[in-house]
Amino acid sequence: MTMPFAEVIGDPVAQSKSPVIHGFWLNQLGIDADYRATRVTEPELANYLAERRTNADWRGCNVTMPLKQAIIPHLDHVVGPADIIGSVNTVTRDGDGRLVGTSTDGAGFLEPLRRQLETPHLFRMARIIGAGGAARAIAHALAEKNFTLVIAARRPEQAQDVVAQLPDDTQHHVVPLDHFSAPTDFAFDDRQGLLDLVVNASPLGMRGKAPLAFDWTHAPPGAIAYDIVTDPLDTQFLQLARDAGHETIDGLAMLIGQAGAAFRLFFGENAPRQHDVELRALITA
């Protein structure tokens, strides 16, 4: 007997917490369906999608690194905001059997910042480390909230690619990744009425990867540290931020936010977000 299912694909993918999140919501709602993790490499993408296209039980997939950009040429249609940012994290099949890509990353990223974003600010600035698919979605979402952006990447051309998909009126700067690694004696001005973010949108700090070298003298007082890495949840980046007196947001906040939007697309129901505290406890147990 088969049942409807969705999944997360990527390489690696075994560490993904998405199956726990979606499985919890399916159980809470009594939906007879499954959500799983499937390792798919970039050379395997075409065959994977061809097989899923003909599988009547398949409801779609979330896409994680390194496939968020690579998957686009294999899709029939890409809708906003993925068509603008050039990065897809969710694929579904429409009524005509077409594979449709979109992105819920930006909305998921902004979700834990709702309280801050409801307050008017004289100026908003975000320092974003990374230039991959997630960084593209995050940069676009923040640009639409009137942030000035500083994009740091290993290769300047990657950062320039991120900048190229931003709204034309976005104030932005591009710096090399090591710009933030050494201490600075820069004297920040009064940050009253300002909102500052420091975002790790790269794989640095993930289990098995090198840590992110960020010296917190580069962050003004009151800046919020936000790390989208989910394994481990409490990264060195966040630990050092707390030591320097900064508020922190871990990657689980974004993961649950973007998963909620994807869940609706896959299973046609709103995720039971009233159980977020219980869900977070389950994931971090």
Rank of each mutant, 00 (worst) to 15 (best):
L75M: 09
Q15W: 04
G208Y: 13
E111F: 11
A126Q: 04
D250Q: 02
A271P: 12
Q236V: 12
P176F: 05
P4K: 11
I85D: 08
F266G: 13
M3D: 00
P167R: 07
Q192S: 07
D105Q: 02
F267V: 12
K68Q: 10
T148V: 00
A271Y: 13
D190L: 05
P203H: 00
F180Y: 15
L252M: 10
S87C: 10
H77C: 00
A37I: 11
R36T: 15
F5C: 08
S202W: 10
F123R: 15
V40W: 07
V162E: 09
D169S: 13
V91Y: 06
A50D: 15
E42M: 11
Q160V: 12
I249C: 09
S16H: 01
G60V: 10
P272W: 11
E157Q: 14
I85R: 10
D243H: 08
L99A: 01
A182F: 00
T64D: 00
G133N: 04
A187F: 06
S16T: 11
F263W: 09
P66K: 01
A126Y: 00
V162R: 14
T248N: 01
G245S: 11
V40I: 15
A164D: 09
G10D: 00
G251Y: 00
E269P: 02
R264Y: 12
A70N: 03
D190M: 02
T148H: 03
A241C: 07
E157S: 14
N200W: 01
L45T: 14
T54M: 10
L265V: 01
G23Q: 03
G222N: 07
L282M: 14
C61L: 13
N89M: 02
G257C: 04
R154K: 12
I249R: 15
G268T: 13
L149W: 03
A159L: 05
M125A: 14
V40P: 12
R154L: 12
T64R: 00
H22I: 10
A70L: 03
G222E: 11
Q192L: 03
Q165N: 10
L233A: 06
F109S: 01
E144P: 08
V163Q: 06
G245Q: 11
A107F: 06
S16L: 04
I228L: 10
F263M: 09
D161T: 15
G80F: 00
A187Y: 09
N89P: 05
A50R: 14
V40R: 08
L177C: 05
